[in-house]
Design a binder for these strands. Structure first.
Lengths: 118, 118
DNA sequence: TCATTATATCATTAAGTGGTGATATAATGA
DNA sequence: TCATTATATCACCACTTAATGATATAATGA
């Protein structure tokens, strides 16, 4: 059983991770690892459509993973904290070891064709 | 636009994070940070029901986040890698700063009553 | 073998969630 | 003001997913 404060932490943590748990949001975050981009640039970088990206950006911003800054007609987004990059990096390291296991996880199917050659 | 290999990485990464993105799975992982537990012990630690936990454990194991070991009639689960603990720790640090933002994210509502005192 | 205990699996249901198109808002310049 | 550009919001639909109860499997001991 969990204390209230622990439950609240769990909720926060799961929300945080949910920001990373979708390929679209993840590709947005990845595109922002290099440098801040405006929405149009994110569209180009990810190939997702504008409406979709705006929706995801809204979530990512609400969840504290990105910050936005208005410059004229453009809204520039950047990662809100260096530790977001660290989290992604750590995940990559971890994946390099357990990739097979995750790859074989059939419980949550990959949405798009993953070109899984086998 | 993304190369095939980058898309595959995205898929893997999002799957990995999805393991952390649900409060039930997260509470299972949390309970295993201390020491390996069998299913019954996880039931007690989390307050979730057995079937639910088994389902989540199946996913967590498939995704490489936990490993299981049979001991007699009991199946013991443990975190599959120290970096899983690191990821959780890093998330906690990050949250201590951006908690307000995540907390205010209304896009994905907290499933259970979070006893949010305010 | 049978009963019991521990865990896994399955089907169902209800709710969550992502993608999309249409539309709204907001900034800029003519 | 009007047109244009950049971004946000909204509603809808299809799909995903978590929780549950019932049941299956597997291990143990009587």
């Amino acid at each position: 059983m969990l204390l209230t404060s622990e439950k609240l932490e769990l909720d926060l943590k799961s929300k945080l991770f949910r920001g990373f748990s979708d390929t679209s949001r993840l590709s947005i975050l990845e595109s922002l690892r290099i440098k801040p981009l405006n929405v149009g640039e994110i569209v180009q970088a990810t190939g997702l459509n504008q409406s979709n990206i705006s929706n995801h950006l809204g979530c990512l911003r609400d969840c504290g993973l990105v910050m936005s800054e208005q410059r004229g007609r453009f809204t520039y987004y950047r990662l809100a904290d260096d530790r977001i990059d660290s989290l992604l990096r750590l995940a990559e390291e971890l994946l390099s070891d357990v990739a097979k296991g995750v790859y074989q996880c059939t419980r949550y199917e990959v949405t798009e064709g993953a070109n899984n050659g086998d």
